[in-house]
Design a binder for these strands. Structure first.
Lengths: 163, 163
DNA sequence: CGGAATGGCATGAAAACCCATTGTATCCCG
DNA sequence: CGGGATACAATGGGTTTTCATGCCATTCCG
């Protein structure tokens, strides 16, 4: 019960005037090795001011995790409610979007708003999933390890942007 | 749950103008015995001014360790944050790069910067993983055993470089 | 017909690939 | 045991491919 290919690495890409952004090739290659899809699912990250993103293979895994958890707690009075909540968050609170032949997605306005994504999108591999951040918000996040912030500063400088 | 083949030995290789380095053949052979991949993952070493490197098999091991730890503490509020941090450091703070048919990698600029690698790359086997150093920084490292420094001095002299 | 969304093309930079050369350790045969 | 031949490793250079991204054409809907 684990996905074979993992998301790793980081990249900083531009969001154009239409809200389009290239999904880094090294992330797309993981998606396409996990399955034959060319879509990603976006959700607000549960603990950070950022977006969580994944592919259909992980969505299926997440679904079965929720089902298994529910079956385990059977008989518990609160469990049914907990299940309904998890399930809605996992599916209703997400948007699935395709990327085109050149690897670009259009950030849906709601997600762009939830993740507070401006004109720069920072992609971070996180194993089974990846994340999309506004780099400025990551640098301002107290719970973020300093090593991680260093990497983001490097990515910004690489583009000639002063932090 | 341990890896069968271990990285051992040392070598000093040149970094060319394009940032390319040959990964020593004795390290590559371990990677290829552990799995069928021809890539290595680079990260800043957590305590030394150097890079830590490993293969996909070790990355998968690291991932499952993190997942197991998290599932054991489920429900704990602090555990969730700890998990997020570990996960990002393990995956977002790393870069996976392939080596070509002649066994060379290109050091990504960010990693070359983080590891302060100049025109010489010192490879050190470290069991489950291996390390890549700027030899000068190793010789200047107080926490490094003298016997280890002797080996590095030997590798430098071997190349006709005076320390 | 205007405006916005979508898909396709063009570009410049960077990365991956291929081939050639050198050096060194190994092997084989005299 | 010596010496040449051989195989593989490391490195240098050049060429092709891919990527991110800007730009334009087309479509779809008001």
């Amino acid at each position: 019960m684990a996905l074979e290919h993992l998301f790793q690495g980081s990249a900083l890409n531009a969001v154009d005037a239409k809200g389009r952004v290239s999904v880094p090739a090294f992330l797309r290659s993981v998606i396409e090795r996990r399955g034959d899809a060319r879509t990603i699912t976006l959700a607000k990250h549960e603990s950070f001011p950022a977006l969580s993103a994944y592919d259909p293979a992980y969505a299926a895994l997440k679904h079965s995790k929720i089902e298994r958890l529910f079956e385990k707690q059977e008989g518990d009075a609160d469990a049914a409610l907990d299940y309904q909540q998890r399930n809605l968050l996992a599916f209703a609170a997400t948007e699935e979007i395709p990327y085109d032949s050149s690897g670009r997605i259009v950030l849906p306005p709601m997600m762009r708003n939830k993740g507070r994504i401006d004109d720069l999108a920072l992609f971070l591999g996180a194993g089974e999933t990846f994340q999309i951040w506004n780099p400025k918000l990551l640098l301002a996040e107290p719970a973020m390890p300093e090593d991680m912030k260093d990497i983001v500063r490097f990515r910004l400088e690489e583009r000639g942007i002063k932090a």
